[in-house]
Structure formats: C-alpha cells, structure tokens
Design a binder for these strands. Structure first.
Lengths: 345, 345
DNA sequence: TTGTAAGCGTTATCAC
DNA sequence: GTGATAACGCTTACAA
C-alpha cells in the first residue's frame, strides 16, 4: 500500500496524494475527499523511511542513556520532552547497557541520518578508542563542523570538548556535601565511587578529597572504594568499610543508588543510621526522600538539565554553530535525616 | 559523502562500493584496499535511511514503555537485549509519558517501516479510541494478518487479543498476596490501585477482592483508593486511609513504587511497619529489598518476561503467524519484613 | 489546482 | 569480479 496505489484508487496522480498528505490546503475539496476515501479504503500508511530519506530529515532526536530503570532519568526526560513537543521533535531512547558496541552503533545513527541529533546522557569515556572517539558521530567533521550532539549530566572529556554540555558542578557539589559531614564533626569519612574510569564519579571524588584536604584531614587508602554504581556494589564496599577498625563514621556515596544499597547493608549489620554511621548520596532521586531515614543528598535540577540540553540541541540542529560552552546548572544540598554528628568515641 | 563519491575517489563503480560494504569477500583484495582507502579519505558513513528504505527492513525493534526511570523495566530490558543481540536486532525505546499521541506516533513507526517490530510494555487502554484501537499499527491488517507486535507485562484488552503476550497471572498473584495478609490475621485490608482505567492494577484489584471474598471478608468502600502509580499518589491515598476509624491494619499496593510511597507516609505519621500497619507491594523492584523494613512483595520474573517477549516477536517478524496465546510466567510471593500480624485491637 | 518527472542513496539484477 | 542500471516510495520543481 504505497502512495501509488492510493493514487490509482483515487484516480489522481501520486503528486496529488503527496500534496494531500503534506499540504492538504493546496488540494481542491473534491479531490481531497477522493484521496481521503482511497486512503481509508487501502489502509495506507506513509512510509516514513522513504519520506525521511527523501527529505533528508527525521525530526527525531536520539537520547542515549546507560540503562532504562534508573530513576534519575525520569526528570531529565520530562524536561527533554517538554522542549521536544514544543519544537516538533520526537524522542527515541537507546541504552548503552554499559557496552561499547551498543554505544557506537547508536551514535552513528545520527551520522547515518536516522536521527537529526543526539543527547548523550551516558558516559562514553570507557568507550573511547585510544586514538580518539569511538564513533565517527562524535568526531569533528572533515569540514570542521560539529555534529548535533549535546552532552547532559556527564562530565566532558577533552576529546569531546567540542560539544556543548549541561551539568551541575560535580566537584563543587561533592565538596559541599563532604564539608557538611565534616561540619557535623566527622573525621573518618569514606567515599564510594563508581568504576575507576567513570568521569562523573571521579569528579565527585575530587570534591570529596578537596574538602578533606581543606579541613586538614587525611584520606585513608581504605576509605575510597568502588561501588560499581549499583546497590550490590555499594553493599560490598560497605562490608569492607565495616570491617575496618576504627571504622569510618560517615560514608559519602557518589550516587543515591549506591547510598540506598549502603544504607541497607549497614542496617543488615545491626548498625543505625545516622546514630552509628551517617550517609550522604548524590542525585536526589525520588527514592532518596522515601528511604528510612530519608537520605541527605545533593539534588540535581534534572528537569532543567533536560530542558536546557534539548534547547541547545535544537539550536544545533538548526545548523548554527552554538559553541561548546559547558553550562553549569545549580545543585542544592538537601539535608534530611541520614546525617548527624558521629557517635562519641 | 555518498557511496557515489567513494566510488569516484576509488575509481570503481558504486556497485563495487556497495559490495565492499555488504559482502567484502566478493571483492578482489586489490579493489578492496582501494575502496577502503577512499572510504577513510572521504569519511564516508553509510546512509542507513536509504539502506533500510531499499532493503525494506531496519533490524530495529521498538520497545514502548510508560517511562524510562521505572526500575521495574531494568530486568525486562536485560532479557530483551539478550535475545536481541543473539538475533541481530537493535533496540530503540520510546516513552508514552502516559500520553495518547505519543503512543500512537510510536506504534505507527512499525507500520511506517521505521522498525521491524514492537514490544508493548505500556498499557494502552487509556489510549484506545471508542471505535477501536488508537493506532493502525495495532489493528488487524486488511488482509487479516497481524503486525509484529508482542505485549509484555500488561494485561491485554479484548481489542488487542489478536496479539501474543507474556505476563504473570496478575489476578492469581494478587489473590495470593492478599491471602498472605489474611493468613496473618488481618481483616481490614486496603488496596491502592493505579488509575481506574489501568488494566494491570484492576486485575490485581480483582485478585484482592477475590481473596477477601474467599475469606468471607467484606471490602469497605473506603479501602480501595487510586494511587496514580506514583509515590505521591500513594501518599495521598494513605493519608485518607489513616484518617479512617477503625483504620485498616494492612495495605496491599498494586506496585512497589506505591508501596514505597505508602511506607514513607505511614512513617511520617509516626506509625510503625509492620507493628501498626503491614504493607505488601507488587513487582519486586530492586528497591523493595533495600527498603526499611524490606518489603514483602510479588516478584515478577522480569528478565524472563523480556526474553520470552522478544523471542516471540522475533518469530513474528520472520513472518510466520505465531498465534496470540497469552503466555503466563510464574510469579513468586517474596516474604520480607513489612508484614506481620495486626496489632491487638 | 493537478500532472509529469527527476532524484534522494542504496541494493539487487543483470550482463560483461 | 566488476559495471550499468533499474528499482524502492516519496517530495518537489516545473509544466500544463
């Protein structure tokens, strides 16, 4: 059922059918009805592939994120959607599943014309080849222009610094969160990071180390552990921390996901939060507030990040060079009940 | 940078470049090197739109879900991915954002050839027009065949009963969960559902009502409330429940998301779980286990649902009629610490 | 207002 | 092994 069959059915030319589809106001009422009837009769559905191919445009934006099911992205997507609807774009999402090829494949979709632009919400650092970017979509084009890509939330590597980005000041926010613990009287503060090569969490680690240094506190080797960005990874890290004597009195987790896992493991070991150990997270996902006790954490303005990211992408897709200024949006330390003064020694 | 320019650069025909791309073994070594060099020099990237258009196939599967950010879908997606990788498909995800047009737009992508098949993980009942399905992609084709669509997790409406589906026995599972509470001695058991038109939660409501009836317990009108599938919705519902005298001693929430919200609101009102009120959820998302107290809930075999859904879709995309048998996968009631006998009256 | 026809970048079918 | 060339379904001048 192509435009051709509709044309035959309606007794008009294919151009008329096409016009009916794209600018019905340029088709005479009588013809319009004929075409409409033919379309209904044939059950025609326009082949978007052919259409986009011919137009050289898809009106589709691809959002690349690590994996579905991460509550942090709920808000970011809401922001992206709001702008997308306004600007007439549809959103398609793809997961890297923390996997190299997956990412390259999707990133190339822009270059191969399947989408008009990309929003990168996933760290791609582990996926960069030695020589440069892992995907041609992420490299500067031969003519020196930059593909329509905007990076959201994530820290930008030097190799990607030609792309605009929107994110919070991860270093500063982590420093502030750590300072909060120090201000409560904690001296032995542990940090649970993501993987060693995660830029996002290594920025947060820098903030933590900075705050400790500012306060003249040494960071013990055993206090900085990898938590794999997962609940289970955080639980493993906590088990190691609890075995230490003296053990840390506070743990700063690089994400709420890990903070939730850490809290669970601490309780499973018969310790109380915050009486025995204080916990701070990062992201302020919706489960941070419902945790027991509610989690002190760093809130990111997720919806705002989504909006601004999409807005910049829209400008980039319009063709203009929009520069590569990283935009830093404000974070906020949310004090809840998972932090308190350390227990008396 | 099309195949044409590469051909010119390499001094070969476009057919040879195409062959190099699709079956390099049919190209002489010497030619191959020439083409390779030309591709690198020109920075060529194959236009997937044109390719898919010509081949009439995309090797893409669209997964439609309510929103990324729902932890339940982590497992389902893992299962889908495992099969997709094996069978050579890529996955694209789209959110309905609980919105009509969004859904139709995406469902039509299959009909408009942008994807080879669809996995529906989102309820579409609110989106059906009076006369039938909201999207042509969901209707039987004129020739009587059925588009490659498989429904996962969700309850299937009569209008969609020509599609295969994979899900747990929501009614039976809810009945079992309710029976657990009744077995503990609870008599005043409340139920927090999703929206009234959510099939998924109305199935679970039926299970709850069935169990109550089986036990000879009446269900008070005020005990069944809508929770909007959200934390906040559940909190509102709980506030209503807590105002009742006598108040319910147990709450069965149609999803873990709402159970988490309910627990939070109960604690915020100074009540203890399960000492004052028992809570049961549904889904067994990862946060159910980390909640405090850990949440008693119905576990769905999410990864298995994903695998089976994708497997059936693969068969459907191969063209064979695979029937529309709903496949029911086993659920499991996971007893944790959010349930106990009711307080003495 | 409508029709004719060129062409988008590929793949596929032929000859050679 | 390689090269012409005809599709694929659509949009879009341009002509009528």
């Amino acid at each position: 059922m192509s435009i051709k069959q509709v044309a035959k059915e309606a007794g008009v030319s294919i151009a008329t059918v096409s016009r009916y589809l794209n600018s019905p106001e340029h088709v005479r009422e009588k013809t319009r009805l004929k075409v409409q009837a033919a379309i209904e009769k044939t059950g025609f559905s326009r082949n978007a592939l052919a259409r986009n191919f011919r137009r050289g445009k898809t009106s589709l934006v691809m959002v690349v994120l690590p994996e579905v099911g991460d509550p942090f992205f709920s808000g970011v997507m809401r922001g992206i959607w709001r702008v997308a609807r306004r600007e007439g774009y549809s959103i398609l999402i793809s997961e890297t599943q923390f996997n190299t090829e997956g990412f390259n494949e999707y990133a190339d979709m822009v270059f191969s014309k399947q989408a008009d632009g990309i929003i990168l919400l996933a760290s791609i650092s582990p996926f960069m080849r030695d020589g440069g970017a892992g995907s041609s979509a992420l490299e500067r084009r031969p003519d020196g222009t930059v593909p329509p890509v905007v990076i959201g939330c994530e820290t930008v590597t030097p190799q990607l610094s030609h792309f605009p980005s929107v994110r919070v000041d991860n270093v500063g926010a982590a420093r502030e969160a750590s300072r909060h613990l120090i201000g409560l009287g904690h001296r032995r503060i542990a940090f649970i990071s993501g993987a060693r090569d995660s830029l996002l969490t290594s920025d947060r680690e820098r903030g933590y180390r900075g705050a400790m240094a500012d306060a003249g506190l040494a960071v013990d080797d055993g206090w900085v552990l990898e938590g794999d960005l997962s609940i289970d990874g955080a639980r493993r890290a906590v088990r190691e921390l609890l075995a230490q004597r003296p053990r840390p009195t506070a743990i700063f987790c690089a994400t709420d996901e890990m903070a939730l896992g850490a809290m669970h493991e601490i309780r499973a070991n018969g310790l109380a939060i915050p009486a025995d150990i204080s916990i701070v997270g990062f992201d302020d996902v919706r489960y941070a507030a419902t945790a027991s006790p509610p989690l002190t954490t760093v809130a990111q303005p997720a919806e705002e990040i989504g909006e601004h990211t999409m807005e910049r992408l829209c400008r980039a897709m319009l063709g203009g060079d929009i520069g590569a200024e990283p935009e830093v949006v404000p974070h906020r330390l949310v004090l809840r009940s998972s932090t308190a003064a350390p227990p008396a020694e």
